[in-house]
Simulated scan of single mutants.
Amino acid sequence: MGLLDRGLEIKDRDQIRLMRRAGLVVGETLELLRSSVRAGITTGELDAIAEDHIRSSGAVPSFKGYHGFPGSICASVNDEVVHGIPGERTLADGDVISIDCGAIVEGWHGDAATTVAVGQVPDEVTDLSEVTRQAMWRGIAAARLGGRVTDISHAVETHVRASGSYGILEDYVGHGIGSAMHQPPNVPNYGRPGRGPRLVEGLALAVEPMITLGGKDTDVLEDDWTVVTSDGSWAAHHEHTFTLTPQGAWVLTALDGGEAELTALGVPFGPLAD
């Protein structure tokens, strides 16, 4: 493992493959949680499902104990954007929950998030989540070896701005990932292209737009974790961890490696051979 300037961690191919193993655990856990979300379940019950699956898969939850965080997932409901602590809150029909999940395999991390509707939600909330998801994929699709980090940022912002009047969080951003969950560089969800560190083989990034139906301003609740919108507007959060190979992009937390979405966007899909 080498280091580039600005403290960027560059992984070799075996280390990227370990990150893929962690990413698959995360992806499988999120699929399990998506199918488990229903009216009447508590966020604490979802957390227990996640921890059991992560550990039974031979991995360790990234989040549990991270700076004292008590859960294995972040469970953020309605106007909660990110870092919601799972517990006794019971989901109701019409809620929307953003679930963030991380796992560690042999010291290497995967990190992803998804937003799930509980029963029927207003069309504007469905649209918000889909715009956020699409913006994430367009950010990943904009990444090229030799490009710059803010090429991703610009693609995310461009899609969101073209899709409606949404708020893009600026205080919470994507990040580098590898032997630690959060590493340089930051990956903002807005900005001009062609700036920031170069995108090189062995760099892994988590792209995670956090978008609201209102403004970009947020507050942190008294639990010192849960981030809510200042105006009470609802939010969505989607995230994937990806890397670039000479063949193209490889989404380490997507069960298919991102093949379907990247191909639909006309972007080369570049998994490493086992």
Score class of each variant (00 low, 15 high):
Gln183Leu: 15
Ser179Cys: 10
Glu157Arg: 09
His175Pro: 07
Gly147Tyr: 06
Arg148Asn: 09
Asp95Ile: 05
Ile99Trp: 06
Thr158Arg: 13
Ser163Ala: 13
Ile152Thr: 00
Arg148Asp: 04
Thr115Met: 00
Trp108Ile: 08
Ala112Gln: 04
Ile99Tyr: 02
Gly176Ile: 13
Gly176Asn: 12
His182Asp: 12
Val173Met: 14
Gly107Asp: 05
Thr132Cys: 13
Leu169Tyr: 10
Ala143Lys: 03
Arg144Asn: 07
Ile97Thr: 06
Arg161Pro: 07
Glu124Pro: 00
Gly102Lys: 07
His109Glu: 07
Trp108Phe: 15
Val131Arg: 03
Gly164Val: 12
Thr132Val: 08
Asp127Pro: 00
Ser153Arg: 01
Gly94Met: 04
Cys101Phe: 03
Ala162Thr: 12
Asp111His: 13
Tyr172Phe: 15
Met181Cys: 13
Gly102Gln: 07
Gly139Asp: 01
Leu169Trp: 01
Gly110Arg: 01
Ala103Met: 05
Met181Asp: 09
Ile104Asp: 05
Val131Thr: 14
Gly146Met: 02
Ala180Phe: 14
Cys101Asn: 07
Leu169Phe: 14
Ile177Ala: 12
Gly176Met: 13
Gly139Asn: 05
Ala103Asp: 08
Val160Gln: 05
Ser179Phe: 09
Tyr166Lys: 01
Val96Tyr: 04
Ile152Ala: 01
Ser163Asp: 11
Tyr172Asn: 02
Gly176His: 10
Val160Asn: 03
Val131Cys: 06
Ile168Lys: 08
Gly147Phe: 06
Val125Cys: 09
Gly178Trp: 10
Cys101Tyr: 02
Asp127Trp: 11
Thr126Tyr: 09
Arg133Ile: 10
Ala180Leu: 14
Trp108Asp: 01
Gly107Gln: 06
Val116Cys: 09
Asp151Thr: 04
Ile140Phe: 10
Gly107Thr: 12
Val131Gly: 01
Asp123Ser: 15
Gln183Ala: 12
Thr132Ala: 04
Leu145Val: 15
Asp100Asn: 07
Ala135Ile: 07
Ile177Ser: 12
His154Asn: 14
Ala103Val: 06
Glu170Tyr: 08
Gly174Lys: 08
Gln134Thr: 15
Tyr166Trp: 09
Val149Ser: 00
Ser165Thr: 15
Cys101Leu: 11
Gly110Phe: 02
His109Thr: 12
Val131Ala: 09
Ala141Asn: 00
Ala135Phe: 03
Tyr166Phe: 14
Ala113Ser: 11
Arg148Pro: 00
Ser153Ala: 13
Ala92Pro: 00
Gly176Cys: 11
Thr115Val: 10
Ala142His: 03
Ile104Asn: 05
His109Met: 08
Arg133Met: 09
Arg138His: 14
Asp95Tyr: 05
Glu170Leu: 08
Val118Ile: 11
Glu106Trp: 04
His159Arg: 11
Ala162Arg: 14
Asp93His: 08
Glu170Trp: 10
Tyr172Glu: 10
Gly139Pro: 07
His154Met: 11
Leu169His: 09
